[in-house]
Nucleic acid binder design. Sequence first.
DNA 1: CGCATATGTAACCATATGGTTACATAAAAC
DNA 2: GTTTTATGTAACCATATGGTTACATATGCG
Lengths: 138, 138
Amino acid sequence: MVTYAIWLFVRATHLTIGKLDSRDMDAVFQALAHESRRRMLDIVKTEPGIAVGALAAEFDVTRIAVLKHLAVLEEANLIISERDGRMRKLYVNAAPIQMIYDRWTTDYSAYWASEMTRIKYLAEASHQHEKRSQTGNS
Amino acid sequence: MVTYAIWLFVRATHLTIGKLDSRDMDAVFQALAHESRRRMLDIVKTEPGIAVGALAAEFDVTRIAVLKHLAVLEEANLIISERDGRMRKLYVNAAPIQMIYDRWTTDYSAYWASEMTRIKYLAEASHQHEKRSQTGNS
DNA sequence: CGCATATGTAACCATATGGTTACATAAAAC
DNA sequence: GTTTTATGTAACCATATGGTTACATATGCG
């Protein structure tokens, strides 16, 4: 497990350095676009090293359906696994989400913050404009 | 446009207060899962009030394909529009992204930060363990 | 070694997605 | 009033998605 953690670190560092290209982004957002898959991520995050079958038991759908969702998450590099005998232990890799956060979400959050400020200013300006109009009419 | 900005503010405030439920999240992530749609968001962000046709002209696919993507973005509340005669002006609504950022991305970013710290610690501990092993053998 | 358990693959199916062309409607321009 | 322009709807089609059942393979346990 220690050597695996080092592998995880090296791999994640590589991902952090590397660019998350457009198709990677597609894959990550697509993976997150289904509630079951977000729930799977949460479960694996809470229980690192959980086995495939134990994860599948948490859902109302067939084990195979969960395997399919798992494949989507793995394809998006959101989940990585380590074979341990006949078991497969699953771990969250939050690097892609971190990179989206770094490169995309914060961009729009900054935009949002500036929009809110601008709209507030316009609302106040509009309110004063209405006041002046009424004073003129009376 | 001023009254529309106020409407935008009120609507966005309502969204901020309201909960982004699971299906909303599905819709937002799904909307962001296609490069053309992310590009559309970027263009509308850069040119608020752009018309549908002008937006469509920026892409290699048919106008109808862009309309379909637009419908996805509107369904996810990421883009809102205002009819102006025969034109339809488009605006970005970054509130859903902000809410995902608030409720989901930062959660995993915090997890990621703690994981990086933990892995670094394990890597150092492992490195010292190897040093001791070599000393013992020689 | 035989049985139990964990995981995976293949095939099927209904629905969704992302593109296309053809046609329709309404507003703007002349 | 007629023509042009902007947008939208409908239908079609190939592929993808998200589920299912049946079967296969490998590891673990008694």
